[in-house]
Design a protein around this nucleic acid. Structure first.
Lengths: 348, 348
DNA sequence: TTGAAAGCGCTAACAG
DNA sequence: CTGTTAGCGCTTTCAA
């Protein structure tokens, strides 16, 4: 079924058929009759345009490549894809998805494969926000970076607003009356493996500290460790063993909070009656915990959606000013925070 | 940069250049000298073939569509994509990924979009195994089904071997000496919403029962419920309150097991000393639990990988015999099963 | 051993 | 208002 078949059956030329099928009939002032004939013929024949052929002429494939370092390990990546997909579809585009597993050779290869297929643009995503150089080729094509803070890149960078997220988490506590006995688990992730901490950790902590300062208070103690359950467990156990009596735990992610819950459970401490907990990620885990965990979400769906929108709406003239976007991190409320009355008593 | 440019620079015709670039120089008996010249010119110019143009001639885009009902909600979907991706890349193909959110109109649209872009084949995946009709169009094109048991479809169906998985889970228990006091949580998922149960539940339970029968024993009690943490918690609490004293819990997935852990923890029962637990999915959750959970994995990566392999290796002549594949479910060992000696004592 | 030429299905000047 | 024509970049038959 080609356009020629449709034109033949409609008794018009291929160009007329083409104009009708691409919706430019009005522009070209095609007669009503001709339009109807073409449309009918197309319907009868079940005609569908060959987009590959069209692309050859138009230099647009209505196709985008999404390439990230990890898609399987984390459910978050799925959300990024999801957001990107919805936006792409809304613009009539399809998405190539690929993953590099952190291998630069694979990465270069994947980008080439996509470019060879004439994608209209490429979205390059890293699993979590960090300073990292994006592949150089990307600056030569339409591209957008997700979570990748390449200072030398001219591509728009889409990242979560971790600082605001930190303030939000702290405010969830202060709003409930918690001003003292706030312990942080995870901190900036300042451990030998990642000296100085992670982007997310550093900025969340800045937000937390600034927010608490607003209330004239501060964190009682911050425990730096890897963001995994076992460390959350260990940190909490150590805290308790050292004689600390936290009224609130601010965990840098849900997995840490999960570990903290396990430790608190073993020590017979109840959430939120004995200790309130707030966290980051708002993963499924947060909703499965008992009580459900109040957590500040990482806006993965939005990151994907905005990346595609930014890519597709980019002005043809590669405009000068930065198109960086800070995406807000919303609070997902659970039942892990108790309200403290001014008398210092707990009220759930 | 087109092939014509390369040919020009190499001082040969476009056809000669084409033969060299597509690796058919030997076939066509192109002179050594000409070959070298072409290769050099291509390298100098940084030539990359325009795959869109090539596709127009060859009718092959080296592109596959993967369409599923959910990619975001579950981390499993990520693994399917991952497996499909690895296999596709190994075959020089790229993957279009899309999700229908269970909407048939969207589904039809997506398939059309992919077909319009001349994909070489389509993989249609449902999130979990079930009897469901696949879109009719798919039988007209190269396609493979994952988890979708459409009895009328002629496409190969790739599904996990749930029956064997059930036997494996049961054997993990019997191998450790557990023959009595085995309670099932989740069962066939035979609840009002899904009368008769789920494919996975039904087949796992068949496997469990057959395996136990081999040892001349059987399940003490099976609790039918939804496969979510809250139900695992509730089921376990009820069991205990009704005076049952399970020695082993066979949970139909990790989330149920998670709920069971919560309940056991509250009742002061230790895993595995007081009660052993085995489960299905082998999700991250299983490794986060304390003690880590022994669980039978759903082979998502393999499902994706095999689907692509099947699609690409399919004989041109759409062969008659069924290409259905049952993918094994491997056991991931954790520390949640205690060994019972013949004397009936527990030994960890 | 190589080159000329046709054509994949489509779009878009340009002429009528 | 509509048709003719020339490609997009590539592969492949056919003739030289």
């Amino acid at each position: 079924m080609t356009l020629a078949d449709v034109a033949l059956r409609a008794g018009v030329s291929r160009s007329t058929a083409s104009f009708v099928m691409t919706g430019r009939a009005a522009d070209m002032r095609i007669s009503e009759a001709a339009q109807r004939k073409v449309l009918e013929a197309a319907a009868d024949l079940g005609y569908r345009p060959n987009l590959t052929a069209r692309s050859l002429r138009t230099n647009k494939t209505h196709t985008i490549g999404l390439i990230s370092d990890t898609i399987a390990t984390t459910p978050f990546a799925g959300e990024v894809i999801h957001g990107a997909l919805d936006a792409a579809l809304a613009h009539g585009h399809l998405l190539f998805v690929a993953e590099t597993a952190g291998n630069e050779a694979v990465e270069a290869d994947l980008i080439s494969e996509m470019l060879d297929r004439q994608v209209d643009g490429i979205i390059y995503a890293t699993m979590f926000t960090r300073y990292q150089k994006a592949p150089a080729v990307l600056s030569k094509v339409q591209s957008v970076l997700i979570n990748c803070l390449d200072p030398t890149s001219s591509s728009p960078r889409i990242v979560p607003d971790e600082y605001q997220g930190g303030r939000t988490a702290a405010r969830a506590l202060t709003n409930a009356g918690h001003l003292h006995g706030i312990y942080v688990i995870g901190g900036r992730h300042d451990i030998p493996k990642t000296p100085g901490g992670l982007y997310a950790g550093v900025n969340r902590m800045r937000g937390v500290e600034d927010e608490l300062r607003t209330y004239g208070t501060e964190v009682a103690l911050s425990y730096e460790c890897e963001y995994e359950p076992a460390f959350g467990y260990q940190a909490t156990i150590e805290l308790l063993s050292d004689g600390h009596r936290p009224r609130a735990l601010l965990c840098l992610n849900d997995r840490l909070a999960f570990g903290a819950y396990q430790a608190l459970g073993e020590r017979g401490m109840r959430v939120p009656d004995d200790v309130s907990v707030v966290s980051f990620d708002a993963s499924d885990l947060a909703s499965w915990l008992r009580p459900s965990l109040t957590s500040v979400a990482l806006p993965h769906y939005e990151l994907g959606r905005i990346a595609v929108t930014t890519l597709l709406d980019a002005p043809a003239g590669k405009g000068g000013e930065s198109n960086d976007v800070l995406v807000p991190m919303p609070l997902h409320e659970g039942d892990s925070i108790a309200t403290v009355t001014s008398a210092g008593q707990i009220q759930e």
